[in-house]
Design a protein around this nucleic acid. Structure first.
Lengths: 380, 380
DNA sequence: ACCTTTAGGCAAGACTCCTTACTAGACTGC
DNA sequence: GCAGTCTAGTAAGGAGTCTTGCCTAAAGGT
């Protein structure tokens, strides 16, 4: 039911958007190249470039074409059109970078955190990183996209604590921390959701519009991609599988997180999974380790039965410090083979996937902001 | 990333779309009324109406305005612009109707089926109903929207049989059955999904963009609405909760459908739930019935824990022959109160919800078809 | 030295939408 | 019964956009 009111202003806006978008994809182009790439006629492109140059969204780079024919001028997006902040926050540290609308990274800042650093340290590191990147880049930081290793409230962007969840980063309010440095919106989401986006765009499930990404690490998380988009649900808590009923070591129904308590795989007194111990179990070959592996496969099989029922994925991607272990995947596959419904598994493989996914969103969003700059009042 | 190529043809198409859409919402309007309602100027509207009249998409109804001022002519969508077939197929019978782009129903056909009628009877009833409605309506049947009480393959529109599911209607291929009568696409989906759409638009969850609709009847089904749209997943099998792990009567993990076997609530030898017997249990007040109710609440609580983990609904709607029973809802609420995460419940109340939901989709789709008629080559 | 190629500019034309002004007809009030 | 008022629709003119086609300038190839 899309039907914007027709007007000549709309046409002009559309032309400018086409020009801006092609400049976001190609970093420097002559007017003639823009015309052929967009399919718009040369005179129209010329007018548009003139408008956008006057609006300081596009600049003549000073470079000139070489080769046969008349020399042409290369145009590009104005460097001061702004950049976006991309940040990833985990209990181990903060990684932040600035990206422009072309998708180029303009500097990266890493800050290590102690495991028991607490939330103030995380907030401070995030703020400091943003300030440094803001000072270093040509334009303002127009928006921020933040990845956090905890559940995120969809309405406020704040990190939330769920019962029996490890709360690795702790209470943090990224929009508040970044309000002074970033001029526009601050988008926050769970690291697993961003990782899923990265796998969708650059990883092992390209072109698969419906899949589930199960992250198994200290915390237990999951992302659901439906119709090509990461689904967040009402509160942003899609993928919080800790309290999902599944099968425990002796076949009794229990919450997924309780399975690790029952198997002695928690890092007491917290509710976090003891990853080193779990990896030992996956490597060991004694009978007890085999029993634990079976129990894990059974429990994860239960989680996957829920994924099948509520997300109907084409594939399930397993990631996280122990989620992509081949022996675990083999055990789960064996379990699935005996189940009434099955689903193919694959292992996640991208490095820093949450940063990749967040970066993609940042570029997309920055592009939309710049397009809106050109025609602030036009809406469609 | 929407950026259609600007052109004058696009503008004209947009004008025509605005005019058509407002005529779909108001059934008869003068040119002046169209102008004020769309915000487009009178001369432009006049041109558009002339074009659309020539294209036989709009007609002068012959009616004239009364009251002060010059008499105006009322225009309306052409009756032969076509209608859409809406059909619901359950083991008890077929209900079919024709709707026009205004959303008006143009006749309903009901065919009762015996419980053991088989799939040929269903196919025949559907085909016959379509033929009768086709003959009765002014224009052609341009598309069909079918609701079926079984899982539907998203790619083909065929009904599919899942292990341990009752397969109430049986193997049926609505696109094939309707290919001769319906000139355009045939959209098929599960009755629960259509019912969820009806509740979203006219029922108890209006404005709630994320909810889950749990249908409890002979079969066990579920619909997931995320960001305002019914989610279907890769194969269209979102909501098939029969094999979801949950808690059985004695606390052991088992598939949801097995719970009914364990409780003796199946209509042997099928896997369908014995609804009358279950309703008896909900009405009875002896200790055994109380135990069964607790077990049901526990099992459904497990299903809801999966819904929370994978859909994060704002509300859960309970529907179906026994799903909206107050005593069941009370038992589930009591169970949820003791759970780490909870969610509000509400009871479905619409009559024939699957037909309402399917009708809404049919009207929407028919509108898009008619708009495309006006400008077949323009795309956005 | 001449031809070819290419970026960019210019002019003309077609088209769309809008504003303003006008006409035709019918009701209202005296 | 008549003048005034109100409204649907039309006509004319203007502003703006896109496209086609042609031209010029400058560089490379032959």
């Amino acid at each position: 039911m899309t039907a914007p009111k027709p007007s000549l202003e709309l046409l002009r806006a559309l032309t400018d958007e086409n020009v801006l978008r092609v400049l976001m994809a190609h970093d420097r182009l002559t007017r003639a190249e823009i015309a052929t790439r967009t399919g718009i006629s040369k005179p129209t492109v010329s007018e548009s470039v003139q408008r956008l140059e006057q609006a300081r969204l596009v600049v003549d780079t000073g470079e000139r074409t070489t080769g046969r024919g008349r020399v042409g001028s290369y145009y590009a997006l104005a460097p001061h059109a702004g950049t976006a902040l991309v940040a990833s926050i985990t209990p181990h540290g903060v990684v932040a970078e600035a990206v422009d609308a072309r998708g180029r990274t303009h500097g990266q800042v890493r800050t290590a955190l102690h495991a028991d650093a607490g939330q103030e340290a995380a907030a401070e590191a995030l703020g400091a990183a943003a300030a440094r990147l803001d000072g270093r880049s040509a334009g303002p930081l127009r928006l921020a996209v933040v990845s956090a290793a905890d559940p995120v409230d969809r309405a406020t962007g704040r990190l939330v604590h769920l019962p029996d969840a490890p709360f690795l980063v702790g209470a943090l309010d990224p929009p508040a921390v970044l309000a002074d440095t970033v001029t526009g919106p601050v988008l926050v989401d769970n690291d697993v959701n961003w990782a899923a986006r990265a796998e969708y765009e650059h990883g092992c499930v390209q072109g698969v519009d419906d899949f589930v990404y199960l992250h198994l690490g200290e915390g237990l998380g999951c992302a659901v991609v439906g119709d090509g988009v990461v689904r967040r649900g009402h509160g942003g808590l899609v993928g919080e599988v800790a309290h999902l009923y599944t099968a425990g070591p002796d076949g009794q129904a229990m919450a997924f997180t309780e399975v690790f308590a029952a198997l002695g795989l928690r890092r007491n007194p917290s509710t976090a999974v003891d990853v080193p111990k779990l990896l030992d179990v996956l490597e060991a070959s004694d009978a007890r380790a085999e029993r634990v592996r079976l129990a894990l496969a059974h429990a994860i099989g239960g989680v996957l039965s829920a994924a099948l029922a509520f997300a109907d994925p084409r594939t399930v991607v397993l990631g996280g410090p122990w989620g992509s272990h081949p022996r675990l995947i083999a055990a789960i596959e064996e379990h699935l083979a005996r189940s009434p419904r099955s689903v193919p598994l694959s292992a996640a493989a991208l490095p820093l996937p949450e940063l990749t996914g967040a970066r993609a969103r940042a570029v997309e969003e920055l592009g939309s902001l710049i397009v809106r700059d050109a025609h602030p009042t036009t809406q469609w």
